[in-house]
């Protein structure tokens, strides 16, 4: 009796043992392929986790945000480099859509379609979506762009090789190569200001409080109040980038 039991347990031991060892071996052999799973995983922010809300109804297209961003972050002045910019969408009565963003909206907007032809018109401020499953982070070959534990997507300019793959991968056109540094550059949510308890420049300078940010994991935060009380949408939801930039009153024409 005891003999059979010990036999069984021994067999079980070997069985379990080999399963565990084999499992570990297979799992470790497959770890290099974990990279494939990047965008399949649910975002997993713990603690402070930033999200951004922009109210299109409140945006008056003054371009102060875009201007403040350039001045605060020493972004090159030429109209090819923007971390933050404003677009004017004009949908005409005949259904055609006109999008404009002269110098990112910094110098203001001139209405180019007569009132009579306009079906509707609105401004859309654009900036990095700080995606939770960011395509730019996914494709960076060296780990020079990454998401901080607080959910801010940053660039490590001392490590970036300037391959421009992230610029190609960003669906929102929020990245560019700094012509002097040769490395990728993007919105940092003014992490250098956040760290000193100040608001990011574009939020600080917005005259109508059209943009707010806050901790998505805090039920009482500004951003959660915003999300609760508005019908919000992200841009290009079909791409499943885990965008954390939520727009109120976003029209389907906006891309």
């Amino acid at each position: 009796m005891t003999q059979t039991r010990s036999k069984v347990t021994r067999r079980n031991f070997f069985k379990a043992g080999s399963i565990i060892v084999g499992g570990i071996a297979v799992a470790s052999a497959l770890t290099p392929f974990d990279g494939v799973l990047f965008a399949t995983e649910r975002p997993k922010g713990k603690g402070e986790w930033y999200g951004i809300g922009i109210d299109i109804n409140k945006c008056i297209g003054c371009g102060k945000c875009a201007n403040a961003c350039k001045l605060e972050n020493n972004v090159p002045k030429d109209p090819f480099y923007f971390r933050s910019w404003v677009e004017q969408y004009t949908i005409k009565n005949d259904g055609t859509i006109l999008v404009e963003s002269p110098n990112g909206g910094i110098d203001g907007f001139k209405q180019s379609v007569p009132d009579a032809d306009i079906f509707k018109s609105f401004f859309v401020p654009k900036m990095c979506n700080h995606c939770a499953k960011s395509p730019c982070v996914q494709v960076c070959p060296v780990g020079a762009t990454f998401e901080t534990p607080e959910g801010i997507v940053l660039v490590d300019e001392n490590y970036c090789i300037g391959c421009r793959y992230c610029v190609q991968a960003c669906p929102y056109g929020c990245r560019f190569i700094n012509p002097e540094k040769g490395t990728a550059e993007k919105c940092t949510l003014c992490i250098h200001r956040l760290e000193k308890g100040k608001n990011p420049a574009c939020f600080e300078m917005c005259p109508t409080e059209a943009r707010i940010y806050g901790d998505l994991n805090d039920p009482d935060s500004k951003i959660n109040y915003f999300l609760k009380n508005h019908t919000c949408m992200v841009i290009k939801p079909n791409l499943n980038t885990g965008s954390k930039l939520f727009y109120n009153a976003l029209s389907p024409e906006v891309r």
């Binding site: 391959c163 040769g182 490395t183």
Partner: peptide
């Protein structure tokens, strides 16, 4: 030769980011 920082190219081999097609 098209890299913005060609001398950092070795990083692709040193710290390859496994989710990036270019690193692999």
């Amino acid at each position: 030769s098209h890299l913005g920082k060609p001398f950092r190219a070795y990083e692709i081999m040193v710290t390859p980011h496994l989710s990036s097609a270019m690193a692999i």
